[in-house]
Amino acid sequence: MKKKSVGIIAEYNPFHNGHLYQIEESVKATGAEVVIAAMSGNFVQRGVPAIADKWQRAEAAVRSGVDIVIEIPTVFACNSAHNFAEAGVEILENLGADFISFGSESGNIEELKGIARVIEENSEYIENFISKKTKDGWSYPRARRAAVESITGASAASLLDSPNNILAIEYIGKISNALPVTIMRTGPGYNEFETTEKFASATAIRSLINENEDISHFMPEEAKNIFLKSEPVDKDVYFRLICHKVLSADSTDMEKAPAGGEGLANKLKASIRMCSNLEELSESLKSKRYTRTRIDRFICQTLLGIDREKKTDNYIRVLGLSSNGREYIREVKKSETCRLPIITNINKDIKNFKGIGYGISVDILAADIYNIAAGKDLYRFSEYLRRPFCE
């Protein structure tokens, strides 16, 4: 009999006490015996390299209480909240997650469901509203927020002012079979640099790590030890890789990136020689119309050659397993209820499944680029040699 499971969509960039709190509260709320995490890979959803590679982040998660860590394919992970959520939910539901748990600033599942329902029931109106406003120079998030406010009023629409609420609403809109559960976010907000005795946002922790400050209060011990030994991307090397790609790529091909369009490729080409680092480049392109997140994501998609016209099926790439997780995966395979290919050995498994070649090729390139920028040996750390971490 399959064990009761809860799924979480995460980035663990890095894994910290807030993530541990979410896991513990999710298990309490659902009675789950297995925790499954669908996690972004070497490049996170907002379009920048993770602070540690996906294998290290998966190990930190398993050592801290997650039973199964699955990579969300790069083409979906380094994309809009809509695509990120859709791929993550599909992975978790195919693995039989009984519940999908997510943090939110709201903590109120019914009001989050209410906004998700409004968006679904008024999708045509909202898309037309967004289309009109973006043509007038509005950013997509601003236009979407205004569209929802025109239906619900300002109070209900204010849920869309908080990043975790936005993702929570996307998850709810994609869930078909699992029961959604939300855990109210505790401690500092998503982008806040303030810390409390035990909690700090991932943004604050990354800043502390970059400044060689003490992070021991904010992360589980084993996770902290893994991240302190990690080899992060060298920002200068990463920027030079971007420069080479932008200077050598064709503008028409660049515009095919999911975050591209509206002349962004030409703007990027025109700016690249004027900037000495990625921060300058992103800031030079940012405007009311183009948010910083969209710019960063477009640059990353350009570097990785992600093309919205090339399609890939979703798949389940296993990055880490506890003994409990290994048993659960075996049961899922036996049940034959999972419609997505389960990949543990890229060399063997990719030959057995059609429709995932493009997605896998982007994952391989993403790993190679990450390893170059982090100064890692391309062969030893290649996707062809890496195997899931097993506790």
Rank of each mutant, 00 (worst) to 15 (best):
1 M>W: 10
3 K>M: 15
4 K>M: 14
6 V>I: 15
7 G>Q: 08
8 I>V: 15
11 E>Y: 00
13 N>M: 00
13 N>S: 00
16 H>K: 06
19 H>S: 12
21 Y>G: 02
22 Q>G: 08
28 K>E: 15
35 V>W: 04
38 A>Y: 13
38 A>C: 13
43 F>C: 01
45 Q>A: 09
46 R>W: 04
47 G>P: 05
49 P>Q: 12
49 P>F: 02
52 A>Y: 11
52 A>L: 06
60 A>R: 08
60 A>I: 09
61 A>V: 03
62 V>W: 01
64 S>Y: 07
64 S>V: 11
67 D>S: 14
72 I>C: 01
81 A>I: 12
83 N>A: 15
83 N>Y: 14
91 I>T: 11
92 L>D: 08
94 N>M: 10
98 D>W: 04
102 F>R: 01
105 E>I: 00
109 I>K: 03
110 E>K: 13
113 K>S: 14
117 R>C: 11
118 V>E: 07
129 F>S: 14
140 Y>P: 11
141 P>W: 10
141 P>L: 09
143 A>K: 09
151 I>P: 13
153 G>W: 11
162 S>D: 09
164 N>T: 02
166 I>C: 09
167 L>T: 02
173 G>K: 15
179 L>D: 08
181 V>A: 01
183 I>H: 01
186 T>V: 11
188 P>N: 01
189 G>T: 00
189 G>M: 03
197 E>G: 08
204 A>V: 00
206 R>S: 00
208 L>T: 02
209 I>E: 06
210 N>H: 12
213 E>T: 06
215 I>T: 15
225 N>P: 03
232 P>Q: 12
233 V>C: 11
234 D>F: 09
237 V>D: 14
238 Y>L: 12
239 F>P: 13
248 S>N: 15
249 A>L: 09
250 D>C: 13
263 G>S: 03
268 L>K: 03
269 K>F: 07
271 S>C: 08
273 R>K: 11
278 L>N: 07
281 L>S: 02
285 L>V: 04
290 Y>E: 07
296 D>V: 00
298 F>K: 06
298 F>P: 02
301 Q>E: 06
303 L>K: 04
305 G>S: 04
309 E>S: 11
310 K>D: 04
317 R>P: 01
318 V>W: 04
320 G>F: 01
321 L>Q: 05
322 S>M: 04
322 S>R: 03
324 N>M: 09
328 Y>I: 00
329 I>Y: 05
330 R>C: 08
334 K>G: 02
340 L>E: 06
345 N>V: 09
348 K>S: 14
350 I>K: 13
353 F>M: 04
353 F>T: 04
367 A>S: 15
373 A>N: 03
376 K>F: 12
379 Y>D: 06
382 S>R: 02
385 L>S: 05
387 R>F: 11
